[in-house]
Design a protein around this nucleic acid. Structure first.
Lengths: 144, 144
DNA sequence: GGTAAGCCTGTACCCGGGTACCGGATGCAA
DNA sequence: TTGCATCCGGTACCCGGGTACAGGCTTACC
């Protein structure tokens, strides 16, 4: 049976640096893989999926700690014994994500309007009312 | 007429550090404001909106350079003389944003499924098929 | 079994995005 | 006009997220 990916293969497949794998391992994002007799890491194929999930979540503005939480929002057990604290964290995360989606939709809307209108100034759009659907919708007023 | 906000007032209102304002000014994100006779900065009210837009965009995973581009995607002129290169950049940005929205929706969907199912493991969801709508959808396969 | 490519641990460094601190100059109210 | 809060420019520092390098062991193939 296939012994697993070597670290270099995995890194290349995921488009990350080899050192990054070790860094993620130290941070606890990537489980310690099995080793060859001589001590070389051998990763299961799922590690690639996980890495891509991590990279995607990062692009979306989550810190590594948040990514870890997202991924961890349950790596412990599955089904049975519904742990309400986990459920609650998941619900909180979900609300956060929904806010992000809404904000991105506001930005997308502004860009679309700008494109349609041949109007190309978002700041002006945000602060004056020359344009129909301004970015100012992002101003939730409660920063920090 | 109201002379504008002092830097401390603006910083507090936006929930950012005073130094951050000067930093953004150096980076070109915040225009140089007018000054009092003695050299103190005096910001127009729109600066607050802009700061909030910046902070929101950052939470969404845009770098400061990208935020600058977003905001700049046109601060030059408005309407008339449709600059196609700007239009094109806006279109590109828009596509990016739509991808982000889709990815966030995938994550939201996973969390929702996990919550509904009392299933609380995203990694397993992503890499096995025990769960209906896995995170694996984030795996676009083309990282970097 | 020789040898090149690949991997090991450890430590040092880099970049983006801020923050802190300093000594000195304003702003404004009493 | 004095006094305290605030702001000024400049420089140095901090943290998250990597990335590079050194010196030595493993693997894989001829």
């Amino acid at each position: 049976m296939n012994p697993g990916l070597r670290s270099g293969e995995l890194a290349q497949a995921a488009g990350v640096n080899l050192q990054t794998l070790r860094y993620y391992e130290r941070r606890g994002l990537l489980a310690e893989p099995t080793r060859s007799p001589g001590g070389h890491r051998l990763y299961p194929a799922e590690a690639l999926t996980l890495l891509r999930v991590i990279k995607t979540a990062q692009r979306l503005g989550f810190t590594l700690d948040e990514v870890a939480e997202l991924v961890d929002l349950g790596t412990h057990r599955h089904g049975r014994r519904r742990d309400t604290s986990l459920q609650r964290r998941a619900a909180t995360k979900l609300a956060e994500i929904e806010t992000k989606i809404a904000d991105l939709q506001t930005i997308a809307e502004s860009l679309r309007t700008a494109l349609d209108a041949g109007c190309d100034d978002l700041t002006t759009c945000a602060t004056t009312d020359c344009c129909p659907i301004p970015l100012a919708g992002l101003d939730h007023g409660d920063n920090k």
